[in-house]
Protein backbone atom coordinates (compact mmCIF):
# COMPACT_ATOMS: atom_id res chain seq x y z
CA UNK A 1 0.00 0.00 0.00
CA UNK A 2 2.67 2.47 1.11
CA UNK A 3 4.87 1.18 -1.67
CA UNK A 4 2.26 2.07 -4.26
CA UNK A 5 1.78 5.46 -2.67
CA UNK A 6 5.50 6.21 -2.89
CA UNK A 7 5.87 5.02 -6.47
CA UNK A 8 2.72 6.98 -7.29
CA UNK A 9 4.14 10.16 -5.80
CA UNK A 10 7.37 9.59 -7.71
CA UNK A 11 5.56 9.14 -11.03
CA UNK A 12 3.29 12.03 -10.12
CA UNK A 13 6.27 14.29 -9.49
CA UNK A 14 7.50 13.64 -13.02
CA UNK A 15 4.04 14.40 -14.37
CA UNK A 16 4.02 17.53 -12.25
CA UNK A 17 7.31 18.80 -13.70
CA UNK A 18 6.02 18.21 -17.24
CA UNK A 19 2.67 19.75 -16.34
CA UNK A 20 4.45 22.88 -15.09
CA UNK A 21 5.84 23.35 -18.60
CA UNK A 22 2.38 22.97 -20.13
CA UNK A 23 0.72 25.24 -17.65
CA UNK A 24 3.26 28.05 -17.92
CA UNK A 25 3.15 28.09 -21.70
CA UNK A 26 -0.64 27.89 -21.66
CA UNK A 27 -0.94 30.67 -19.11
CA UNK A 28 1.16 33.03 -21.17
CA UNK A 29 0.76 32.13 -24.81
CA UNK A 30 -2.77 30.63 -24.45
CA UNK A 31 -1.70 27.70 -26.58
CA UNK A 32 -1.75 23.95 -26.11
CA UNK A 33 1.87 23.07 -26.79
CA UNK A 34 1.55 19.50 -27.97
CA UNK A 35 5.25 19.41 -28.83
CA UNK A 36 6.14 19.60 -25.14
CA UNK A 37 6.07 15.81 -24.73
CA UNK A 38 8.57 15.48 -27.54
CA UNK A 39 10.90 18.02 -25.97
CA UNK A 40 11.00 15.58 -23.01
CA UNK A 41 12.02 12.84 -25.39
CA UNK A 42 14.79 15.03 -26.87
CA UNK A 43 15.94 15.79 -23.32
CA UNK A 44 16.10 12.07 -22.60
CA UNK A 45 18.15 11.40 -25.73
CA UNK A 46 20.49 14.33 -25.06
CA UNK A 47 21.23 13.04 -21.56
CA UNK A 48 21.60 9.53 -22.94
CA UNK A 49 24.19 10.67 -25.51
CA UNK A 50 26.07 12.72 -22.93
CA UNK A 51 26.12 9.83 -20.49
CA UNK A 52 26.72 6.89 -22.80
CA UNK A 53 28.62 8.23 -25.83
CA UNK A 54 30.61 11.07 -24.24
CA UNK A 55 30.91 9.36 -20.86
CA UNK A 56 30.07 12.50 -18.91
CA UNK A 57 29.01 12.22 -15.24
CA UNK A 58 25.29 12.41 -14.50
CA UNK A 59 25.03 16.04 -13.28
CA UNK A 60 26.93 17.32 -16.35
CA UNK A 61 24.73 15.21 -18.60
CA UNK A 62 21.62 16.70 -17.01
CA UNK A 63 22.91 20.26 -17.46
CA UNK A 64 23.86 19.47 -21.06
CA UNK A 65 20.39 18.07 -21.69
CA UNK A 66 18.81 21.17 -20.14
CA UNK A 67 20.88 23.44 -22.38
CA UNK A 68 19.89 21.47 -25.49
CA UNK A 69 16.21 21.56 -24.58
CA UNK A 70 16.24 25.24 -23.67
CA UNK A 71 17.82 26.12 -27.00
CA UNK A 72 15.37 23.81 -28.75
CA UNK A 73 12.44 25.41 -26.95
CA UNK A 74 13.54 28.92 -27.93
CA UNK A 75 14.16 27.82 -31.53
CA UNK A 76 10.72 26.20 -31.80
CA UNK A 77 9.10 29.30 -30.40
CA UNK A 78 10.99 31.65 -32.73
CA UNK A 79 10.55 29.62 -35.91
CA UNK A 80 7.15 28.00 -35.58
CA UNK A 81 5.01 29.83 -33.01
CA UNK A 82 6.15 33.45 -33.22
CA UNK A 83 4.93 33.97 -36.81
CA UNK A 84 1.50 32.88 -35.57
CA UNK A 85 1.29 35.18 -32.55
CA UNK A 86 -2.02 36.71 -33.64
CA UNK A 87 -3.45 33.71 -35.50
CA UNK A 88 -6.37 31.58 -34.28
CA UNK A 89 -5.58 29.13 -31.48
CA UNK A 90 -6.46 26.21 -33.72
CA UNK A 91 -3.79 27.22 -36.26
CA UNK A 92 -1.20 27.34 -33.47
CA UNK A 93 -2.38 23.96 -32.20
CA UNK A 94 -1.89 22.34 -35.60
CA UNK A 95 1.54 23.95 -35.89
CA UNK A 96 2.44 22.50 -32.49
CA UNK A 97 1.37 19.10 -33.76
CA UNK A 98 3.55 19.65 -36.82
CA UNK A 99 6.49 20.43 -34.54
CA UNK A 100 5.73 17.28 -32.55
CA UNK A 101 5.77 15.14 -35.73
CA UNK A 102 8.97 16.86 -36.75
CA UNK A 103 10.78 16.14 -33.48
CA UNK A 104 9.60 12.52 -33.39
CA UNK A 105 10.71 11.83 -36.93
CA UNK A 106 13.99 13.66 -36.47
CA UNK A 107 14.67 11.44 -33.45
CA UNK A 108 13.67 8.42 -35.51
CA UNK A 109 16.24 9.31 -38.16
CA UNK A 110 19.04 10.18 -35.72
CA UNK A 111 18.57 7.45 -33.11
CA UNK A 112 16.41 4.89 -35.06
CA UNK A 113 13.42 3.15 -33.52
CA UNK A 114 15.54 0.65 -31.53
CA UNK A 115 14.98 1.26 -27.83
CA UNK A 116 18.00 2.70 -26.04
CA UNK A 117 18.77 1.50 -22.50
CA UNK A 118 18.94 4.67 -20.45
CA UNK A 119 21.62 4.71 -17.74
CA UNK A 120 20.29 5.41 -14.27
CA UNK A 121 21.33 8.96 -13.49
CA UNK A 122 20.03 9.11 -9.95
CA UNK A 123 22.05 6.34 -8.31
CA UNK A 124 24.70 8.64 -6.87
CA UNK A 125 22.74 8.54 -3.63
CA UNK A 126 21.82 5.28 -1.88
CA UNK A 127 18.32 3.82 -1.67
CA UNK A 128 16.55 4.06 1.66
CA UNK A 129 15.18 0.93 3.29
CA UNK A 130 12.57 1.42 5.99
CA UNK A 131 11.22 -1.84 7.35
CA UNK A 132 10.19 -3.84 4.32
CA UNK A 133 9.79 -0.81 2.06
CA UNK A 134 12.58 0.17 -0.31
CA UNK A 135 12.60 3.70 -1.64
CA UNK A 136 14.80 3.75 -4.71
CA UNK A 137 17.32 6.51 -5.34
CA UNK A 138 15.37 7.53 -8.48
CA UNK A 139 12.26 8.07 -6.38
CA UNK A 140 14.11 10.19 -3.82
CA UNK A 141 15.79 12.33 -6.46
CA UNK A 142 12.53 12.75 -8.37
CA UNK A 143 10.62 13.93 -5.33
CA UNK A 144 13.43 16.25 -4.16
CA UNK A 145 13.84 17.70 -7.66
CA UNK A 146 10.16 18.41 -8.05
CA UNK A 147 9.92 20.10 -4.64
CA UNK A 148 12.94 22.30 -5.44
CA UNK A 149 11.53 23.20 -8.86
CA UNK A 150 8.15 24.00 -7.38
CA UNK A 151 9.62 26.33 -4.74
CA UNK A 152 12.02 27.95 -7.21
CA UNK A 153 9.24 28.59 -9.72
CA UNK A 154 6.93 30.05 -7.11
CA UNK A 155 9.67 32.41 -5.92
CA UNK A 156 10.58 33.24 -9.50
CA UNK A 157 7.06 34.21 -10.52
CA UNK A 158 6.31 36.19 -7.37
CA UNK A 159 9.63 37.91 -6.64
CA UNK A 160 11.66 38.54 -9.80
CA UNK A 161 11.00 41.17 -12.42
CA UNK A 162 10.75 38.60 -15.21
CA UNK A 163 8.36 36.50 -13.14
CA UNK A 164 6.11 39.47 -12.55
CA UNK A 165 6.25 40.29 -16.25
CA UNK A 166 5.15 36.73 -16.99
CA UNK A 167 2.15 37.02 -14.72
CA UNK A 168 1.26 40.36 -16.22
CA UNK A 169 1.44 39.00 -19.78
CA UNK A 170 -0.68 36.01 -18.86
CA UNK A 171 -3.33 38.27 -17.39
CA UNK A 172 -3.55 40.83 -20.17
CA UNK A 173 -1.12 40.90 -23.05
CA UNK A 174 -2.16 44.29 -24.36
CA UNK A 175 -2.05 46.06 -21.02
CA UNK A 176 1.32 44.46 -20.22
CA UNK A 177 2.72 45.81 -23.45
CA UNK A 178 1.42 49.29 -22.63
CA UNK A 179 3.21 49.09 -19.27
CA UNK A 180 6.48 48.63 -21.13
CA UNK A 181 6.85 44.88 -20.80
CA UNK A 182 8.59 43.19 -23.69
CA UNK A 183 5.90 40.61 -24.46
CA UNK A 184 7.90 38.67 -27.02
CA UNK A 185 10.92 38.31 -24.74
CA UNK A 186 8.65 37.21 -21.90
CA UNK A 187 7.05 34.51 -24.03
CA UNK A 188 10.45 33.30 -25.21
CA UNK A 189 11.67 33.09 -21.61
CA UNK A 190 8.61 31.06 -20.68
CA UNK A 191 9.32 28.61 -23.46
CA UNK A 192 12.96 28.41 -22.38
CA UNK A 193 12.03 27.64 -18.77
CA UNK A 194 9.34 25.15 -19.79
CA UNK A 195 11.75 23.31 -22.09
CA UNK A 196 14.51 23.28 -19.48
CA UNK A 197 12.04 21.67 -17.06
CA UNK A 198 11.12 19.19 -19.77
CA UNK A 199 14.76 18.11 -19.95
CA UNK A 200 14.79 17.38 -16.20
CA UNK A 201 11.51 15.52 -16.56
CA UNK A 202 12.99 13.54 -19.45
CA UNK A 203 15.99 12.45 -17.40
CA UNK A 204 13.84 11.51 -14.40
CA UNK A 205 11.29 9.68 -16.54
CA UNK A 206 13.95 7.69 -18.35
CA UNK A 207 15.75 6.86 -15.10
CA UNK A 208 12.54 5.29 -13.84
CA UNK A 209 11.52 3.66 -17.15
CA UNK A 210 14.82 3.14 -18.97
CA UNK A 211 13.42 2.34 -22.42
CA UNK A 212 14.08 5.29 -24.69
CA UNK A 213 12.28 5.40 -28.07
CA UNK A 214 11.23 8.38 -30.25
CA UNK A 215 7.66 8.17 -28.91
CA UNK A 216 8.72 8.06 -25.25
CA UNK A 217 7.38 11.54 -24.62
CA UNK A 218 3.91 11.36 -26.17
CA UNK A 219 1.94 9.41 -23.57
CA UNK A 220 3.53 11.09 -20.49
CA UNK A 221 3.01 14.36 -22.36
CA UNK A 222 -0.72 13.72 -22.75
CA UNK A 223 -1.03 12.57 -19.14
CA UNK A 224 0.88 15.57 -17.83
CA UNK A 225 -1.38 17.79 -19.90
CA UNK A 226 -4.33 16.03 -18.27
CA UNK A 227 -2.68 16.71 -14.91
CA UNK A 228 -2.31 20.39 -15.74
CA UNK A 229 -5.99 20.60 -16.65
CA UNK A 230 -6.99 18.61 -13.57
CA UNK A 231 -5.22 21.11 -11.34
CA UNK A 232 -6.53 24.08 -13.28
CA UNK A 233 -4.51 25.05 -16.34
CA UNK A 234 -2.44 28.19 -15.92
CA UNK A 235 -1.96 27.64 -12.19
CA UNK A 236 1.49 26.53 -10.97
CA UNK A 237 0.41 24.91 -7.67
CA UNK A 238 -2.47 23.36 -9.61
CA UNK A 239 -0.06 21.64 -12.01
CA UNK A 240 1.90 20.26 -9.07
CA UNK A 241 -1.22 18.99 -7.29
CA UNK A 242 -2.74 17.60 -10.48
CA UNK A 243 0.46 15.78 -11.40
CA UNK A 244 0.86 14.08 -8.04
CA UNK A 245 -2.83 13.14 -7.81
CA UNK A 246 -2.69 11.67 -11.29
CA UNK A 247 0.46 9.67 -10.58
CA UNK A 248 -0.89 8.23 -7.33
CA UNK A 249 -4.22 7.42 -8.95
CA UNK A 250 -2.52 5.67 -11.85
CA UNK A 251 -0.36 3.50 -9.57
CA UNK A 252 -3.34 2.58 -7.35
CA UNK A 253 -5.49 1.77 -10.37
CA UNK A 254 -2.75 -0.47 -11.73
CA UNK A 255 -2.34 -2.22 -8.40
CA UNK A 256 -5.93 -2.69 -7.32
CA UNK A 257 -8.17 -2.53 -10.37
CA UNK A 258 -6.57 -3.39 -13.70
CA UNK A 259 -3.28 -2.68 -15.42
CA UNK A 260 -4.94 -2.41 -18.80
CA UNK A 261 -7.66 -0.06 -17.64
CA UNK A 262 -5.46 2.25 -15.55
CA UNK A 263 -5.27 4.91 -18.26
CA UNK A 264 -9.04 4.82 -18.69
CA UNK A 265 -9.48 5.30 -14.93
CA UNK A 266 -7.08 8.25 -14.89
CA UNK A 267 -8.92 9.96 -17.74
CA UNK A 268 -12.30 9.18 -16.18
CA UNK A 269 -11.14 10.89 -12.98
CA UNK A 270 -10.27 13.99 -15.01
CA UNK A 271 -13.73 14.04 -16.55
CA UNK A 272 -15.44 13.68 -13.17
CA UNK A 273 -13.38 16.52 -11.69
CA UNK A 274 -14.11 18.77 -14.65
CA UNK A 275 -17.84 18.09 -14.42
CA UNK A 276 -17.84 19.12 -10.77
CA UNK A 277 -15.29 21.94 -11.13
CA UNK A 278 -15.23 23.03 -14.79
CA UNK A 279 -11.99 25.01 -14.40
CA UNK A 280 -9.96 22.39 -12.55
CA UNK A 281 -9.12 21.99 -8.87
CA UNK A 282 -7.20 25.23 -8.37
CA UNK A 283 -8.20 27.06 -11.54
CA UNK A 284 -9.63 30.54 -11.41
CA UNK A 285 -13.23 30.89 -12.41
CA UNK A 286 -13.47 33.55 -15.05
CA UNK A 287 -16.56 35.69 -14.95
CA UNK A 288 -18.15 36.13 -18.32
CA UNK A 289 -18.75 39.67 -19.41
CA UNK A 290 -21.71 40.36 -21.60
Amino acid sequence: MLNYLISGISLGSVYAIIALGYTMVYGIAKMLNFAHGDVIMVGGYAAFCAGTYFGWPAPVAVVFSMCICTILGILIEKLAYKPLRNATSLAVLITAIGVSYFLQNMALIIWTSNPKAFPNMANFIPSIIVGDITISSTTIITIIASVIIMIALTLFTSKTKMGKAMRAVSEDKGAAQLMGINVNATISTTFAIGSGLAAIAGVLLCSAYPNLVPTTGSMPGIKAFTAAVLGGIGSIPGAMLGGILLGVLEKFAQAYISTQLSDAIVFAALIIVLIVKPSGLLGKKIQEKV
Binding site: A80, P83, L84, N86, A87, T88, A91, I94, T95, I97, G98, V99, Y101, F102, Q104, N105, M106, L108, I109
Partner: peptide, 22 residues
Amino acid sequence: QDYRMLVYAIVLILVMIATNNE
Protein backbone atom coordinates in the same frame (compact mmCIF):
# COMPACT_ATOMS: atom_id res chain seq x y z
CA GLN B 1 11.95 7.16 -47.78
CA ASP B 2 12.80 7.68 -44.11
CA TYR B 3 12.45 11.40 -44.50
CA ARG B 4 8.85 11.37 -45.72
CA MET B 5 7.18 11.98 -42.36
CA LEU B 6 9.77 14.65 -41.66
CA VAL B 7 8.90 16.33 -44.95
CA TYR B 8 5.22 15.95 -44.07
CA ALA B 9 5.82 17.72 -40.74
CA ILE B 10 7.75 20.56 -42.37
CA VAL B 11 5.09 20.99 -45.06
CA LEU B 12 2.43 21.10 -42.34
CA ILE B 13 4.24 23.80 -40.34
CA LEU B 14 5.04 25.89 -43.42
CA VAL B 15 1.46 25.70 -44.72
CA MET B 16 0.10 26.77 -41.33
CA ILE B 17 2.50 29.72 -41.19
CA ALA B 18 1.87 30.69 -44.80
CA THR B 19 -1.90 30.69 -44.40
CA ASN B 20 -2.10 32.26 -40.96
CA ASN B 21 0.74 34.75 -40.62
CA GLU B 22 -0.58 38.30 -40.80
